[in-house]
Design a protein around this nucleic acid. Sequence first.
DNA 1: GGTCTTTCACTTATACTGTAAGCAATCGGG
DNA 2: CCCGATTGCTTACAGTATAAGTGAAAGACC
Lengths: 208, 208
Amino acid sequence: MVSAKRRPLDRRRILEAAVTFVDREGLEALSMRKLGAELGVEAMSLYNHVPNKSALLDGMVEVLLGELKVPPEDASWEERVREAYRAFRRLALEHPNVFPLLIVRPPDTMDGVWLVEEFLKTLSGAGFDPDTALCAFRALSSYASGYAMAEIRGFAMEPAGARLGALTLPRDDFPHIHELDAHLGEIDRDAEFEFGLDLIIAGLREKL
Amino acid sequence: MVSAKRRPLDRRRILEAAVTFVDREGLEALSMRKLGAELGVEAMSLYNHVPNKSALLDGMVEVLLGELKVPPEDASWEERVREAYRAFRRLALEHPNVFPLLIVRPPDTMDGVWLVEEFLKTLSGAGFDPDTALCAFRALSSYASGYAMAEIRGFAMEPAGARLGALTLPRDDFPHIHELDAHLGEIDRDAEFEFGLDLIIAGLREKL
DNA sequence: GGTCTTTCACTTATACTGTAAGCAATCGGG
DNA sequence: CCCGATTGCTTACAGTATAAGTGAAAGACC
């Protein structure tokens, strides 16, 4: 009795299933057994395509990075960089449960290297010397990943936006937080992200 | 036979033990049993002071934040902000195994709130309106946490610095990475961190 | 001091985890 | 058609968090 539904498992299919599973159920919920069940397969079958769970997580990061498209070459360096990091943040918002993996266990795959090379090429072409190009890459990447991560977590460090709720805080001890709390819900995060991006890019432009 | 060594367990002592354990053995190695053993106690005893492992991790973040001292009020806003984020990064480098917790599960405790309020006060005192003060806080925090995280992970996304090693890459496909690879080891990370910080702070100064 | 209550560590037990080892069925190539 | 390799299934083990129950020590009140 061959089930027609079960096409043969392969690495790619496993990784993608893992990503959609984590998108839906959260990272903590991911176990080999449940992922197997998702694919109509026993847990141990996965080990034919993936050496262990750690490698599975790495593979998921790979899948995520694969979704990242580099912007076209014809744009100005500023617009190209900007668009690249916008795409990066978009990725985080689309996969808020998977994205932290990318931060905590950065990839050692070729996909990541391409992006770096592409970035360096763009900035080098714009006239930056290699060292500042690298500095720029790290500064922008730090900012973007940090922002995306904080956004995913709802800026929890500021109690206002998060679970704690500013209103429970004594008003006179935290006046500035209370002042902000009023219109904290209306903040346009796209604009806010862009604000920081502009800050850095403008600063880089000066160095040219 | 009362062991004189065993003073009664308490939450604080558990959290600190957890931090030093993770500092030494890594985050993955942390389990309730091992932590108990570290304290000369059975795993379940910990549950008298901590509701579950998740709360334990939150508590560890609390401990870390507690080590963060805010710089004195008399400095200029720029120097104060700069010093605060330097301290933040220092924290990451001192506890590279625990720090990711702070990124992935930001605190909902009062300690964090104080820092935010203090920051807002400083910038507000310098003449920033509340909205840009918040933007500034988020931009700087994003940058600093992103940088610290990447640094801890050895900038793994760029293959050169990390495990992969640039030399295994085809030279003509990745010319810019190869060009950098030569003096990649000599980068002064303090200066590099400062570079990005300056970029953002200078940009903020313009907005005043 | 004696009793009572509360605290807190220990023990036991359960459901789940990743994964090693071996078996079986299915599929591709001669 | 057969044979070997692939790949999924079964079983098993050690380690995980943690719920529930036990017992003893410590502090509070008369």
